[in-house]
Nucleic acid binder design. Structure first.
Lengths: 151, 151
DNA sequence: TCATTCCTGATTTCTTTACTAAACACGTAG
DNA sequence: CTACGTGTTTAGTAAAGAAATCAGGAATGA
């Protein structure tokens, strides 16, 4: 139930791209501005390119840019591109698992977990993230004081 | 963003305990009824004991039982006992991270992610799980047809 | 051509996961 | 009071994954 460094880096990098709409941004500048190791970041950007979120050009004046408008890319898209499916249980999607005995209802709980993650991550676009104008459901969750308390 | 085998096993084991309110249940029976490797399960039960969710007695007629009523133990409690905090980012709690530049709002997103996970996992008790009578908010999420579709 | 920049696979280091083995400690029955 | 059936604890390990790093190749523009 944790967010990996890779996913965190990926979201930060594309946020930086979303905030730089004019022309390509060099990997090095992305790495600098978000404190991400350059070579690791380049692998991540390659993943993002393969899944069509980012485009790139080499050579002088080269760099990376978003392949789509920032309001058409969700955070969920970015995480899936680098980590695969969200909210797997034991590396299998929750709808494919079946439990027996007293744990029979557990599948519904994992499905609900995944649905609630999707509610947040699919509704938030890169444009929302960069503008600070988060969707109402996300803002409501984050504004709750309890949400900031550790456990 | 995945649920580990350890967490899955832990929840299933305590569900089995919640369904057996009379006297101790042997580790072997838990392992059998839920298809969990016995020795691994005993490690898990030890974690659960240390955090006060389970109690145990050795010797003939020994076994494990819930330390508290099943409606006072949430799935979140069980997961925290074996995995530590829910929804950490890069092994740190989201409220302790600070982002710069275009990623500044990302902290709010991770806080919202954690809050939505808590909404599901803290509201569901072992009693709910065993009876199949999940809380309304969880049931609503799981009943949505989209929730069962892979992505 | 040449500097610049992305592209890619191999390798490394470290941690976690998932599990096994075996000695040890304790409680109950006989 | 002893033996046996339990749980407790320590130790260890193979395999996978996470997080980088290294070293070079391939495209682009000047």
């Amino acid at each position: 139930m944790r967010v990996s460094a890779k996913a965190d880096y990926a979201v930060r990098a594309v946020a930086e791209l979303a905030a730089s709409p004019d022309g390509p941004v060099k990997g090095e500048r992305l790495a600098d501005s978000q404190d991400i190791p350059l070579q690791f970041l380049e692998h991540i950007l390659l993943d993002l390119k393969h899944s069509g979120i980012v485009r790139a050009r080499r050579g002088a004046k080269g760099g990376y840019w978003l392949a789509k408008p920032a309001d058409e890319v969700s955070i969920a898209d970015v995480i899936r591109a680098v980590e695969g499916p969200i909210a797997n249980v034991q590396s299998a999607p929750p709808e494919s698992i079946s439990y027996k005995g007293s744990a029979r209802e557990l599948q519904n709980v994992w499905i609900a977990v995944r649905a609630s993650l999707r509610d947040v991550l699919e509704s938030t676009s890169l444009a929302d993230l960069v503008s600070g104008d988060l969707p109402a459901n996300v803002r409501d969750l984050a504004d709750d004081k309890d949400a900031w308390a550790p456990r």
